[in-house]
Amino acid sequence: MATAQTLRQKERRRHLWIYAGLTPFVFIAVFPIYWMLITAFKQDPDLYRMDNIPFWFNLAPTLRHFKILFFQTNYGAWIVNTMTIAAWVALITLVTAVPAGYALARLRLPAAENIGISVFMTYLVPPIILFLPLSRVVAMLGLQDEWWALVVVYPTFTIPFGTWLLMGFFKTVPMEMEEAARVDGCGYLGAFLRVVLPVSVPGVLTAVIFAFTLSMQDFLYGLAFVAPGDQKPVPVGVPTELIRGDVYYWGSLMGAALLVGLPVAVLYNFFLDRFIQGITGGVGK
């Protein structure tokens, strides 16, 4: 009995040490987000006074910054742009990466493994090398200065990643299922559509989420290809349009950033392990 108690005490002490060690990390990670949050709801006079303790409200919280955001800027349009772009990118990624991932994983194509790796390698070609030639491509398609340009360009990184991810996923689907379907008279297409796809919904969903969150992580393409104020996606519009010369609307800026950033961060959070598995090649474990 006594030993059990000391054991429990020991365990509790161990936990306390771990929490103590983790506290600085959590603080470093979360403080900027807390700071955005509180800035977004503070009144201007409260933001620009240094004699008060700035970590809490010294004046009543306000929604004024959000009003400015929605009524005096293109923020609403940016949100719509962001969502529409992401939806199109997800769709393009799906109709290309799902079949490609399946073909590479299951149809015993010669050199499938090498093709898969080459496709994935293109994910590592950084936008900074591609954006100048792509600006010509965008101009050729007549899409400069429209958000459609980004619908064309974002799949350059979502397709390679999605294909790789789904390739790993399809490898985990038991082969017998397809064979049984084929014995039952399904063609290759039938087996794929009616048997493999329905059990692959989680993998496909993951690919959609990544098409969405990876599009949100872009800044360079949006900056380079979309100039008109009402055509930008949120991550580009907020830093380029809400800063006018040297005047900073910090409250609105932080509000705008958080309102879109946090949901994306939370969503990404749930799929982070899949992302890490994807890039480290340990897919389908």
Partner: peptide
């Protein structure tokens, strides 16, 4: 996980 252009702000 936060979009980079947003956290830089």
């Amino acid at each position: 996980t936060l979009p980079i252009a947003i956290s830089v702000l």
